[in-house]
């Protein structure tokens, strides 16, 4: 569990979270506190539970919380639907953004932006106002406006999909953004653009949780806290130096320190 010394308010508090899917326990007591102004990174092998954690926080209906709690801005989100969580300011950047043929990217962005604005007590944007609103955010992710006319993520490259995710993040102005392996499938230039976008959007009143395998994203976005997950638990928490150590020594070292054999970890990661 992370105990931040900061006096800033806790935006996301995960307490001893256990969860299962199809009767198999995949989170075995995760605790994590993210405060305003902080950037956290969660690292771990495939199958360690990182993506499950992010989906649970966003309210994916396939996962069942068996015990523990998730509090966002002081409110338990268990009874909140995914859309209510989003409108309240939780954002999940998908590892694999879904392609939806026939749904216009522009219309999708406008409907989702207005859903969030309505929850914030702001005026909804009509088509013309929205396009003005969108313009500067497009520049942030260096996205060609022609992508707005296309179907949502359909035929987008990996980098284009991730830029579209960051564009959504810029429009929704979340309180807590969880970016699930945003660096996967990105070339160096796309990674730089995405990282610049995330850094630009990070501020003292919001927080970011990065889910990643690799150090390379953390070279561009510096977290204050790094957590290492395995077996559905956070085994270790440290500062940015922990990510460097993982890069140097691999995950076995953390497993051994936590008393888990590398064979067990390999089974989990399979």
């Amino acid at each position: 569990m992370t105990e931040s010394v900061s006096a800033s308010p806790a935006l996301l508090e995960v307490q001893d979270l256990r969860a299962s899917v199809a009767d198999q326990e995949i989170l075995c007591g995760v605790s994590l506190t993210v405060r305003a102004g902080e950037i956290h990174a969660v690292m771990g092998r495939n199958g360690s539970g990182k993506s499950t954690l992010s989906k649970l926080i966003a309210g994916h209906p396939s996962y069942t919380v068996t015990s523990g709690s998730i509090r966002f801005n002081g409110v338990d989100v268990e009874e909140m639907s995914p859309e209510e969580r989003s409108r309240a300011g939780l954002f999940l950047g998908f590892q694999y953004p879904v392609e939806i043929p026939g749904v216009s990217n522009l219309e999708f962005l406008r409907v989702s932006t207005n859903a969030r604005r309505q929850a914030q007590g702001l005026e909804e944007l009509d088509t013309f106002s929205f396009e003005d609103h969108l313009q500067q955010r497009l520049e942030l992710v260096q996205m060609d406006p022609s992508f707005l006319e296309r179907s949502l993520n359909e035929g987008f490259s990996g980098g284009e999909k991730k830029r579209n995710e960051i564009l959504q993040m810029a429009l929704l102005e979340p309180v807590v953004a969880i970016l699930d392996e945003t660096d996967s499938g990105l070339d160096i230039d796309a990674l730089r653009i995405v990282a610049e976008g995330v850094n630009h959007l990070a501020g003292p009143s919001n927080a970011t949780l990065l889910i990643t395998h690799y150090q390379r994203l953390l070279d561009a976005i510096t977290p204050q806290f790094v957590h290492v997950m395995a077996h559905g638990r956070i085994l270790r928490t440290g500062g940015p130096e922990l990510a460097h150590e993982l890069e140097r020594r691999g995950y076995d070292w953390v497993d051994e320190a936590a008393g888990i054999s590398s064979r067990q970890s390999a089974e989990v990661g399979a």
């Binding site: 209906p61 396939s62 989702s112």
Partner: peptide, 30 residues
């Protein structure tokens, strides 16, 4: 209707009914 597509829309603040309608319209748009 795809659960994953619906969850993606819902995770962007779009309620289930509106999301389902968007997916239906998307299916027809082609």
């Amino acid at each position: 209707l795809s659960d994953e597509e619906l969850f993606y829309l819902r995770s962007r603040g779009i309620d289930r009914l509106t999301g389902a309608e968007l997916l239906r319209r998307g299916f027809c748009a082609e």
